[in-house]
Simulated assay, not measured.
Amino acid sequence: MNPIGGARALLGADGNGGVDWAAARRAAHELTDPGDLALSDSVRGAYAEDLQAAHREIQATAGIEFDLPRTIQVQNRHHWIEATLETLETAFEPLADRPGALPGITGPLNTASIAGSVAYLSRRVLGQYDPLLFAESEPHRLYVVHPNLVSTAAELDVPVERFRRWIAFHEVAHAAEFGVAPWLRPYLAERVTGIVAELATGSLPKDQYGELNRAMTVVEGYAELLMDEAFDKPSAELRRKLDTRRQSGGPLSTVVSRLLGLDRKREQYERGRAFFDAIVAERGLEAAGAVWDEPGNLPRESELEAPGRWLDRVRPTAPN
Rank of each mutant, 00 (worst) to 15 (best):
L68M: 15
A54F: 05
L225N: 07
V74H: 01
R245W: 04
A223M: 04
L242E: 11
L102R: 06
L304P: 13
H174C: 07
P299S: 02
G250A: 01
H170R: 07
A181D: 03
L39H: 09
H170M: 03
L311S: 05
G100A: 04
A38P: 11
L102M: 07
T71G: 10
R25W: 11
V172K: 11
L10S: 04
S248E: 06
M227F: 13
G45V: 08
P319M: 08
V19M: 00
D36S: 12
G261D: 09
E171V: 10
Q268H: 12
Q73Y: 12
G194D: 00
L95V: 04
Y222S: 10
A318T: 14
L37M: 10
Y47S: 06
L262F: 07
M1F: 08
R300F: 03
A135M: 06
N76Y: 00
R191F: 01
V219Y: 15
L88H: 05
A112K: 07
P234V: 14
A9V: 09
L285I: 12
P69L: 02
A13Q: 09
G35M: 08
G249H: 02
P295D: 01
A200C: 05
T152K: 08
R123F: 02
A181K: 00
D36I: 00
G284Y: 05
V172F: 08
A154S: 06
E220S: 09
Q268G: 07
W21C: 02
V219C: 13
R165V: 02
A173N: 12
I279E: 02
T254V: 14
R25S: 09
A9Q: 10
L121Y: 12
L132G: 03
L298P: 14
S122V: 07
T87N: 14
E138M: 08
P307G: 07
P147Y: 11
L212W: 01
R8Q: 15
A135L: 08
A200D: 05
L298N: 03
R258W: 04
W310Y: 04
L260E: 13
Q75H: 09
A290R: 13
D263M: 01
A27M: 03
